[in-house]
Each structure stands twice: as C-alpha cells, then as structure tokens.
C-alpha cells in the first residue's frame, strides 16, 4: 500500500548470518491470560519456500499459535515476544488492528479447517476472491479483480471457473469450497501461508487433491508454509520439517525424516507409535500414550509431559531446555536413545 507502516524496527535480516531473510521469525512467543500461560517460549523461523508442520493433539496450543501469528487472539488473551514477517516493518506482537489488517490476506494468509464458516454465505465466491485483491489494491478495479479471481479459481482446478465464480458457497461441495478458501489465501501471493487442519473435514480422495494444490500453490509463489495438523501421515506427506507441540511448548523439532524415524522426545515417540495402525505389541494391541491431554492450565510444572511419561524422574520437575543439535532440537531430560 504505502510506507506509513514502518515501525520501530531493526533493519531486515539483521543478526542473521546467511543472506536469505526468513519469511517468518518467531522469538520467545508467550501467549496467555493474566494468570494462565497457554503458549510458552515458542521460537522458530520459516525460510521462503520452506514447508513446516506443526503437530500435536488438541489442547497443545497449535491453533492458538496460528491465531497469535495472525494477531487474532481473543481480547483477554495477550501475546509477548516477537513475530516478524519479511518486508513488514513492524512486529506482529503489539501491532495495531490497523497495521494487522494490511498484513492479513496479503503478506500472510490462512486456510481454516471449516470452509463453510470461512466463506461468506451471501456473496458469490468469485467476488470473495476479488474482494481480497481489491482490499489490498492488488488490482486496479472491480473488473480486473473479477478476471483475476476467475483465473485464481482455475488455478485451484475448480471445474468451470467462470460458472463457479458466480456460485454461492452452499452450491459447492466441501472440497470445492476449500479450494475457494485456498484461492482467496493465495490471491495476493503471501510470504507465509498458514493452514490449520485444512483437510480434516474432507474425504480422503478429496484430501489427496487438496494437499497437492496447497503444495503447488506455495511452490509457485515461494511462500513459506506452516501446516497445522494432528495427522502425522499428512504432515509427513506435505512438509520437510516438523515442530512437535505439547502443553503450549515445542518439545521437539527437526527434519521430518529424522524426527519421525528417530524421535528423541518420548511424546513424539508415543504419537508415532499410537498413530501406526500396523504396529501392535505382542498381544495384538495398538500402542498408546497413557492418560489424556490435560486441560489448559492443568499441565504439570517442569516438563509438561512428565505426568504421562514412563521415564519421568525427580529431575523432570525442572523445565528441560530445548537443546539444539544441528537441525534438530528436543526438550527432554531423558531423551529416547538414538539407535546405534
């Protein structure tokens, strides 16, 4: 738009040794209410074009992280730390609604789980795609935006894009609606695309096509992708790197093929075992993680996983730091042994 959105900022790329500026840099993100921490010490970066998965069970803080990135936290919930987007002169944490509305749908966009609630039911879908381009002045006028919208709908492979542009959301199937949501998200070539369980409500055959479209979309634009899901198989299909979240903390991170074959955190190990429907113990039973995810604020002090962990000791009363080793990191006093 214009340059009035420059804030108190460090020059882009400051303090990063390599030349490429990350598309998104999150430092020490903390989200919570006055007396309850919901997300603690979350730090990560996304390079342009990088595909990163954020996994964990419900109540682990994945979706709240996405809302914090978009500056969409509920009133009573506050964030601290820093969230920096490339080519955006201010910090998302503490940014005004006016500043954020220029970023959302432009530099950063999101695909939600439920396409029916993400779309306006009384507006033709073509106009909804055109609207996002007009709002951010990416198209000079209504007609050009409408043309571009039909092109976007064709790119997400909606059959008969001209006709589809005139359809209302209820006239489309679940998979088609989610394609429209993706078209809106990609319309302004965002630097960062957030996807929160984008295929959970879809049938598997439709899911396969949707995942393909998301990947093609981000690859064409060199956008960074943050893909939130509870489905380990999906994340392994889509992403290169994974962040495992539990109790509002990142407990393990690293390249997918390493984390999923040689996990270091007992929670990651447990998740992998529990989702493998082919692996059973001697009595033909699936592997489980004992207990359930506690409600927010009921996680134990120290290591958040210690009340469900078979290896927990007295030491686990202390919060384990996220120890980095090469591309990988884990926060555990008694990590799962590396097989030799």
């Amino acid at each position: 738009m214009n340059n009035q959105i420059a804030g108190p900022s460090t020059p882009p790329g400051a303090g990063i040794p390599d030349a490429a500026e990350p598309a998104l840099r999150v430092r020490d993100l903390r989200v919570g209410t006055d007396n309850l921490d919901l997300i603690t010490d979350v730090s990560f970066t996304l390079a342009p074009g990088e595909r990163v998965g954020l996994i964990g069970e419900s109540g682990s803080g994945k979706s709240l992280t996405a809302l914090a990135l978009l500056g969409l936290l509920p009133e009573e919930v506050k964030a601290s730390g820093s969230i920096r987007l490339s080519e955006v002169g201010f910090d998302v944490v503490g940014a005004s609604e006016r500043q954020m509305s220029k970023v959302r749908g432009d530099r950063m966009a999101m695909v939600f789980q439920e396409p029916m609630t993400a779309l306006n039911p009384v507006m033709q879908v073509g106009d909804q795609v055109a609207e996002i381009m007009l709002l951010h002045r990416r198209q000079p006028d209504r007609r050009a935006a409408r043309r571009a919208a039909v092109e976007m709908l064709a790119k997400v492979r909606l059959p008969d894009p001209e006709g589809a542009a005139r359809a209302y959301p209820h006239q489309l199937s679940g998979g088609q609606r989610q394609r429209v949501v993706l078209a809106i998200a990609l319309a302004n070539d965002p630097a960062v695309l957030l996807c929160d369980e984008p295929t959970t409500a879809l049938d598997v055959t439709v899911q396969a096509h949707m995942l393909d479209l998301i990947l093609t979309g981000v690859a064409e634009r060199d956008s960074a992708l943050l893909f939130i899901t509870h489905d380990l198989a999906v994340v392994a299909t889509v992403c290169e790197r994974v962040l495992v979240m539990y109790g509002g903390r990142i407990v393990e991170s690293g390249p997918i093929d390493e984390v999923f074959t040689r996990p270091r955190h007992p929670y990651t190990r447990g998740l992998l075992d529990a989702s493998d429907m082919d692996a059973v113990d001697g009595r033909g039973r699936l592997h489980t993680i004992p207990g359930t995810v506690p409600a927010a604020g009921r996680f134990p002090d120290g290591c958040v996983f210690r009340n469900r962990c078979a290896h927990a000791t007295q030491q686990c009363v202390q919060v384990p730091p996220l120890e980095h080793k090469g591309a990988r990191a884990h926060a555990c006093w008694h990590p799962v042994e590396e097989p030799t």
Partner: peptide, 12 residues
C-alpha cells in the same frame, strides 16, 4: 480409496 490414504510409511 486405498491409493488416497496417506500413511507414515509411504510418506517417509
């Protein structure tokens, strides 16, 4: 249906 199901093994 069988082809569409993503599995960890296949993904890895």
């Amino acid at each position: 249906l069988v082809a569409a199901v993503p599995t960890l093994r296949r993904a890895l």
